[in-house]
């Protein structure tokens, strides 16, 4: 590169130092800067910041609501745990327990315990062949009143 041209170029570029907006601009710059800083403080927040603030207020600025959320969550968890736990033997008085043969046998035994049973005479001589025969109390066992041999 030609050193003379280089020097001339530097002189030309140095002319740009004289480009200036003028004294009034710099005289008011400090006041403008303070105004800029104050305006920046009052600047409305972005949509995202606004949304985040609203959400935070909604969740944490109301203690009762917060408690309601946590207690609801705890209830749901508790119900889920109870519902998923393995089933145990139903109690005797359980109404909703499904019927089983064990229950029928037990109930029958209980009912029969209170029924008075007359002794049955096995002697053929004591038997009135015209009268019906009963097994338990007055319940008819058979209706044939004659014996056909």
């Amino acid at each position: 590169m030609n050193s003379k041209q280089e020097l001339k170029l530097q002189q030309l570029l140095r002319l740009k130092r004289h480009e200036s907006p003028g004294k009034p601009y710099f005289d008011h710059f400090l006041a403008e800067f303070h105004r800029y800083q104050r305006a920046d403080l009052l600047e409305s927040p972005s949509k995202w910041q606004e949304w985040k603030t609203n959400l935070t207020n909604f969740l944490f600025a109301r203690p009762v609501r917060t408690f309601a959320y946590s207690s609801s969550f705890a209830t749901v968890v508790l119900l889920a745990v109870v519902g998923l736990s393995p089933s145990t033997a139903p109690s005797d008085k359980s109404v909703s327990a499904p019927p089983s043969s064990y229950h029928y046998a037990e109930a029958t035994e209980e009912a029969l315990r209170h029924v008075e049973i007359n002794p049955i005479s096995l002697s053929a001589f004591d038997r009135d062949f015209n009268a019906p025969r009963f097994v338990t109390g007055e319940r008819t066992l058979a209706y044939e009143n004659t014996v056909a041999f």
């Binding site: 200036s20 907006p21 400090l30």
Partner: peptide
């Protein structure tokens, strides 16, 4: 600010 405003502007 007063010290550097003009140079920084340039």
């Amino acid at each position: 600010i007063l010290r550097y405003k003009e140079r920084l502007y340039g």
